[in-house]
Amino acid sequence: QLNLPENTDDWTKEDVNQWLESHKIDQKHREILTEQDVNGAVLKWLKKEHLVDMGITHGPAIQIEELFKELRK
C-alpha cells in the first residue's frame, strides 16, 4: 500500500520513484527521473519523447506515460 498524496501535483520526486517502483519500473529508469527532478507536477506533462530524451528506452517510456494517463482518470 503506497502512502502518497492524493493530488499527484503534490508528489515529490521520491513519491514518483515509489509509485514507479510499485509498477515494476526498473531502477535505472527511476533513477533517471529522480536525477532530472521529476516530481508529480512535472510527470503529468511528460510525453514519451521527453522520457526518451532523458535516456529512457522506448518501451519503459511508453509504459510510464500510459501508467500516468491511467492514474489521472
Rank of each mutant, 00 (worst) to 15 (best):
Gln18Ser: 07
Glu14Ala: 06
Val16Phe: 06
Leu67Trp: 14
Pro5Phe: 05
Ile62Gln: 15
Asn7Lys: 09
Val38Ile: 12
Pro5Asp: 05
Ala61Arg: 03
Leu43His: 00
Arg30Gly: 02
Asp53Trp: 01
Leu67Lys: 15
Val16Met: 07
His23Trp: 05
Asp26Ile: 13
Val38Tyr: 12
Lys69Val: 13
Leu4Gln: 01
Leu20Asp: 00
Asp10Pro: 00
Gly59Asp: 14
Gln1Gly: 07
Leu4Tyr: 08
Asn3Trp: 00
Leu2Cys: 10
Asp37Gln: 14
Arg30Val: 04
Glu6Asn: 12
Lys24Arg: 07
Val16Glu: 01
Lys44Phe: 05
Gln1Trp: 01
Trp19Lys: 00
Asn39Ile: 01
Glu70His: 12
Trp11Lys: 00
Asn7Arg: 08
Leu51Met: 08
Asp53Gly: 08
Ile32Tyr: 04
Ile62Glu: 15
His29Val: 12
Gln18Trp: 06
Gly55Ser: 00
Leu43Lys: 06
Lys44Ser: 13
Asn7Gly: 08
Asn3His: 06
Thr34Asn: 12
Ile64Val: 03
Val52Leu: 10
Leu33Pro: 02
Pro60Thr: 15
Asp10Met: 11
Val42Pro: 07
Ile32Met: 07
Ser22Val: 07
Glu6His: 02
Pro60Glu: 15
Gly40Ser: 01
Asp26Gln: 05
Pro60His: 15
Lys28Pro: 12
Glu21Gly: 06
Asn39Gly: 08
Leu51Thr: 05
Asn17Gln: 04
Ile25Ala: 03
His50Tyr: 14
Asp26Ala: 04
Lys69Pro: 04
Pro60Ala: 14
Leu20Trp: 01
His58Arg: 14
Lys44Cys: 09
Leu51Arg: 02
Leu20Phe: 02
Gln27Pro: 08
Phe68Ala: 12
Lys69Ser: 12
Leu2Thr: 09
Asp37Glu: 10
Ala41Pro: 11
Ser22Cys: 09
Leu20Tyr: 01
Asp37Val: 13
Asn3Gln: 03
Lys69His: 13
Gly40Trp: 01
Glu35Met: 06
Leu2Asp: 11
Thr34Gln: 07
Val52Thr: 11
Lys28Arg: 06
Gln18Asn: 03
Glu31His: 08
Glu21Thr: 06
Leu51Ser: 02
Asp26Tyr: 02
Val16Arg: 00
Lys44His: 13
Val38Met: 10
Pro60Asn: 15
Gln1Met: 07
Leu2Phe: 01
Pro60Tyr: 14
Lys24Trp: 12
Asp26Gly: 05
Ser22Met: 07
Trp19Glu: 00
Ile25Glu: 03
Val52Gln: 14
Trp19Asn: 00
Gln36Met: 13
Thr12Ser: 08
Trp11Leu: 03
Gly40Gln: 01
Leu33Thr: 01
Leu2Gly: 09
Glu35Phe: 09
Glu14Leu: 06
Asp15Phe: 02
Ile62Ser: 15
